[in-house]
Amino acid sequence: MTDHAHAHHDQHGHEAPAVAGRELTKLAVSATLHCLTGCAIGEVLGMIIGTALGWGDWSTIGLAVVLAFFFGYLLTIGPVLRSGLPFKQAVKVALAADTVSILVMEIVDNGVMLAVPGAMEAGLTNVLFWGSLAFALLVAFVVTVPVNRWLIGRGRGHAVVHQYHH
Results as ranks from 00 to 15, higher is better:
Q89Y: 14
D98I: 00
P117I: 10
G155Y: 08
P79S: 11
V145A: 02
V112M: 15
L63E: 01
S132D: 02
P86G: 10
L103Q: 00
W130L: 02
V80T: 09
A159F: 08
A134V: 15
N110M: 12
F129Y: 10
L124T: 12
A68Y: 08
A119D: 05
E121L: 12
T76Y: 10
V93Y: 12
I102G: 00
Q89P: 00
M120H: 02
H165E: 15
K88Y: 11
F69P: 05
R154C: 08
M113F: 14
W58F: 14
A119F: 03
G84Q: 07
P86C: 01
K88V: 14
V127G: 12
S101D: 12
L95A: 11
A97Q: 13
Q163S: 07
K88T: 15
A97V: 00
K88S: 15
A136Q: 02
L137Y: 07
L53M: 11
S83W: 10
P146S: 01
A97M: 12
L128P: 03
A68W: 06
L95V: 00
I152M: 08
I77A: 06
R149T: 00
A68N: 10
G56Q: 02
Y164S: 07
P86S: 14
L103N: 03
W55T: 06
R154A: 11
R149F: 00
T60E: 02
T144N: 12
G155H: 03
L137T: 09
V143R: 04
G56W: 06
V116N: 04
P146E: 03
V160R: 03
P79E: 11
A64S: 14
G54V: 02
G118M: 05
S83E: 08
V66G: 09
A140K: 03
L103M: 15
A90D: 09
W130V: 01
D57C: 00
I102L: 14
V116G: 03
N126P: 01
E121N: 11
N126I: 05
L74C: 11
G123A: 05
Q89I: 04
N148Q: 13
L67G: 05
A119V: 04
A122L: 03
V160N: 07
I77E: 01
V66C: 12
V161F: 10
D98E: 14
F141T: 03
T144K: 09
W55H: 11
V145K: 01
G54L: 06
S59K: 15
T99K: 09
D109H: 13
I77M: 12
V161M: 07
A64Q: 07
I152E: 04
R149K: 13
L63G: 05
A140E: 01
